[in-house]
Simulated assay, not measured.
Amino acid sequence: MQESLAMDPHGGHYLNKAALLSPLGAARIAQLVLGCSTMSLVAHQAGYSANYGIFCMFVWCFCFAITAVVFTLDVTRLHGCMPISWDNFTVAFAMLATLMYITASVVYPVYFLRFECPSGRCEERDYRIAVTVCSSICCFAYGAEVFITRAKPGHVVGYMATVSGLLKVVQAYIACIIFGALANDSEYNRYIATQYCVVIYSLCFAVTVVVVALTVTGRTSALRFPFDRFVVIYTFLAVLLYLSTAVIWPVFCFDKKYGTLQRPSGCPQGKCPWDSKLVVAVFTYANLVLYIADLVYSQKIRFISQQPA
């Protein structure tokens, strides 16, 4: 049996030209070009080492790989075969990539960039400057995608495209920074009160990740109660819990009865428990502000229930 082909004037294109010829497509192409350039410069001459360098290289490789997959699936329209909410996934990843690139763009020059040239050889320094520039510009490329796909007033979009959804990604990312500081000899196990704070950080992080995961997978209807009510109640409780840690953590870390207000003079930089405690305190207040903003904004959005595809 021989198959025949016919032209259908009403048929759609297999390739999505809008994924290329649109502001969103331009942003993703810029992400790929800049990400590839950054990795190539590091691998060729700039170099990296130690845990900070490994983290930066992981950020660049991870974001490039996921962006390449997203771009390919969008161009070929194969994202419709994925068992996820595509719009929610892409905007959540773009927000996460923006935060990761910002971190890498700060960490890499701080630990690897020196403006003086050792032995008169400036080639390595110049490559590291180029890495910093490419990585910094790529932050704006991912931020542009977030800006393009964010929720507009009156439009029906996925939850992750709203300010509340984007804040969930930022809250989870800041919690990861807190965990990193806690693991860096923060002495949190000295007091039950500071251990309580760690439990609060872990609990809020876990629930936030669950909210993001349910949204990205399109399984919000799996909850036995309305998703919008769950999100608002959880955010309210998170504000109260973080408020308690914002009071307890500084008292048991910097009050002279339990710790010290000033940095100890003989404490080595990068390995000082006082520094880790300060990082935890700063980002605790940062997350508290984000949860409050999330709670305020969640009163302004209207949820529309959708069945998973």
Rank of each mutant, 00 (worst) to 15 (best):
V163F: 10
A238H: 00
R28D: 08
L41H: 04
N189E: 09
V282Q: 03
Y242K: 02
A151W: 08
L295Q: 05
A183Y: 11
S265A: 12
L5F: 15
S105P: 02
Y52K: 14
R28I: 00
C117D: 08
Q307W: 13
F252M: 01
P83D: 07
W60D: 05
A46Y: 07
G120F: 13
F58C: 02
L32V: 07
H10D: 15
C63P: 06
A50S: 11
T260R: 13
C267Y: 09
V110S: 12
S105I: 01
Y127L: 01
M160E: 05
L113S: 06
F112A: 04
C139Y: 04
A46L: 05
Y142I: 00
R125K: 15
P118D: 10
Q307K: 14
P23R: 01
Q195S: 13
A130F: 06
V207Y: 04
T217P: 04
V289Y: 13
R229L: 15
I248P: 01
G266P: 00
T260K: 14
E116P: 03
V279S: 04
E123G: 03
P226T: 06
R114F: 06
R229E: 14
I54L: 08
A141D: 07
A18S: 14
H44D: 09
S37I: 15
F112C: 04
S40M: 11
W274Q: 05
S22N: 10
R263Q: 10
G180M: 00
W60N: 02
A286H: 03
S49G: 04
V156H: 12
W274T: 11
L240Y: 02
T215W: 07
G25I: 10
M57Q: 08
T220W: 08
P273H: 02
G11D: 14
E124G: 11
S244T: 12
G25W: 09
G218Y: 09
G25V: 07
I66H: 05
A92R: 04
Y101C: 02
A26Q: 13
S244V: 08
R28C: 01
V169W: 03
F64D: 06
S202Q: 05
F225N: 08
Y291L: 13
A30M: 12
W86H: 03
A206M: 03
P308C: 14
V211D: 03
F205H: 03
H155G: 00
C253H: 11
V207E: 01
L240V: 07
N51A: 09
S105M: 05
F64W: 15
M1C: 12
L295N: 03
P153K: 12
V157F: 00
M100H: 04
T215D: 15
F89P: 00
M57K: 03
L214F: 15
C267P: 10
A26G: 11
A175Y: 06
C63Y: 08
V280P: 06
M160D: 00
